[in-house]
Design a binder for these strands. Sequence first.
DNA 1: TAACATGACCTTATGGTGCGAGGTATGCGG
DNA 2: CCGCATACCTCGCACCATAAGGTCATGTTA
Lengths: 118, 118
Amino acid sequence: MLKKQTLDGNIETILLAILRDGPSYGYQIIQDINTRANGLLRLGEGTVYPVLHRLEEKGLLAATWRQGDTGRKRKYYRLSPKGKTALAANIEQWHGLTELILRVVINPARQAVASSPL
Amino acid sequence: MLKKQTLDGNIETILLAILRDGPSYGYQIIQDINTRANGLLRLGEGTVYPVLHRLEEKGLLAATWRQGDTGRKRKYYRLSPKGKTALAANIEQWHGLTELILRVVINPARQAVASSPL
DNA sequence: TAACATGACCTTATGGTGCGAGGTATGCGG
DNA sequence: CCGCATACCTCGCACCATAAGGTCATGTTA
């Protein structure tokens, strides 16, 4: 199971990516993530709902209340154009991070710096 | 340049990895990181020193003061056995995270779930 | 009918973390 | 003497993940 600190900063990206596949609502999104994560991660409501609100406030998501087939109303979120752009930017950031970790952490081989002759 | 939120939670791992190559001191470590990051990242002293202290307090690093060739004394840090274990654990966490992001964010193909026939 | 389970939403409080800004000390060159 | 580079440090802010604790609505079950 991934620790909080490992996951930090990537939850927004995960939510945006989930919504890329079409509109959905909080409760469903949580199930989706936990299913797709397949044991690697288990997000609770106290984590996801605030992030959704944040993303809506930033204009990356748009929300509409709709009556579902069961019980209470659902708040459906969908990716806004701004959200799509942000998702792309986040993915780029992610690639940057993997490159950095690869350079500094994973790959023990010395980086070629100016002072290193071939 | 990587944003804070993208980097969150990985700085400890980066520091541990730097120290894996042998003992060093704060100021030098900062240069090292920023050189190796090659523009992807620029860490300041206000970021690195507290992390070093945290890692020392947790027993992942051991420190000794030594006189350097120039001016002031330097506080040399080296990886403790506990630190080596932690680094290995962090790297495992990292692989978990990459797998998760790959599954949920990068790879748009549907995950094979129980209900999906081949 | 009361109790419980489940789907569905929410907020508050807490602890952790990154980081800019600012401060101290030492030696060297102009 | 002043400034610069090396080298250390801390304070305060802002942000974020999360557990815990609520609120509704609709069943189902004792």
